[in-house]
Write a protein that binds this DNA or RNA. Sequence first.
DNA 1: GTCTATAGCTGGATAGAC
DNA 2: GTCTATCCAGCTATAGAC
Lengths: 212, 212
Amino acid sequence: MSNLPQPNDWREGRRRAARDAIVRAAWILVDEEGLAALSLRDLARRAGITTPTIYAYFESKNSIYDAMFGQAATQFADTMAAPIDGNGPHEILAAHALRFVEFCTSDPARYQLLFQRTVPGFEPTPESFAPAIRALASTRELLASHGITDERHVDLSTALITGLVDQQVSNDPGGDRWIGLVDESVAMLLAHAQSERPAWKPPPRTTRSKGL
Amino acid sequence: MSNLPQPNDWREGRRRAARDAIVRAAWILVDEEGLAALSLRDLARRAGITTPTIYAYFESKNSIYDAMFGQAATQFADTMAAPIDGNGPHEILAAHALRFVEFCTSDPARYQLLFQRTVPGFEPTPESFAPAIRALASTRELLASHGITDERHVDLSTALITGLVDQQVSNDPGGDRWIGLVDESVAMLLAHAQSERPAWKPPPRTTRSKGL
DNA sequence: GTCTATAGCTGGATAGAC
DNA sequence: GTCTATCCAGCTATAGAC
């Protein structure tokens, strides 16, 4: 097979580029105006095209949200899968949690789309959803491999870490008042989990980071 | 002064009753359809009147939200101000936290209006807001009087308790998966606050977050 | 593929008769 | 105070010329 571009390749390439440009413009808009404020008119204007042209690339407004969701889920999976260097449960889990909190707080609209499901009639397609599922499952395994195995402790952890995110974005946007509590939160969770399991077996010595 | 109703009294009374009926209908609607889905057409239909009649009692849609907010804030203050019987910090704080979580989860639309501020152009008036301020201040005092004085610990507590609420309403609506963790959460917070006094000591060999 | 033009709907809010 | 009738703005989505 030739590696020169074929006619269909550039057509596909141009199509993808146009779709990407629209989605990029959509992210700018939702970051500025809020996730729910996205309108096709504003989007077209921002992208330098007209409303009907959007329909040449997306079949509906929700399919634009779905493309954004897919991007966000992939970014989430990539971010969380990057290797973590650290020794011991606290360092590794704290780095992981901090990564999660910073991913969420660095783009509140993305967080809202991905985790809060507040867009009226929108449900992501399974294909867009898949990367997020994978990342959450591997987080669960990371917790398990460092001593958080009890379901109650897992639920406590998710509540606390997402609570930090919510307080941060709603009460100190752009600041770090709650982000700065990630380390202490992980210490507290680990101490609590260990206090309830006095006969606790240490995790494997290898630094596990991803792909579990 | 006579205690028989004067003409202006019934007028006022009828007016208040009509306003209350509209607000009651509004709560039914937002509980069914979501806070953002409230429309004056639906509201009028539900209340058995027509849209312009609403404007005889409220000057705008946001003033209806404000009346709802005032009701919710008063309910919140009353709920949290009820006496707590219990011995020791854990019992008292846990009862208080449970009361908060149950107040929030028992009516998600009310929780959303009161604490999440997700209605587009709406800001509550200071008069509607006041009861909520009072209740939150007294919660802070309750924490302080039972050993949670450090700002970091207060922030951890709010993050954890609101995190329980958020997980409960979004991942197990109507259930008690996270409500059932209130007791354990308070125990964990108290143990942490006691273990870390007087000064927070960083855990061994950890990259400090950028917090203060 | 991109445009102009517009359909069709829903929203908040108002005018004016009664 | 309550209604009928309506305005005006915004939205998603489509028709049809080019």
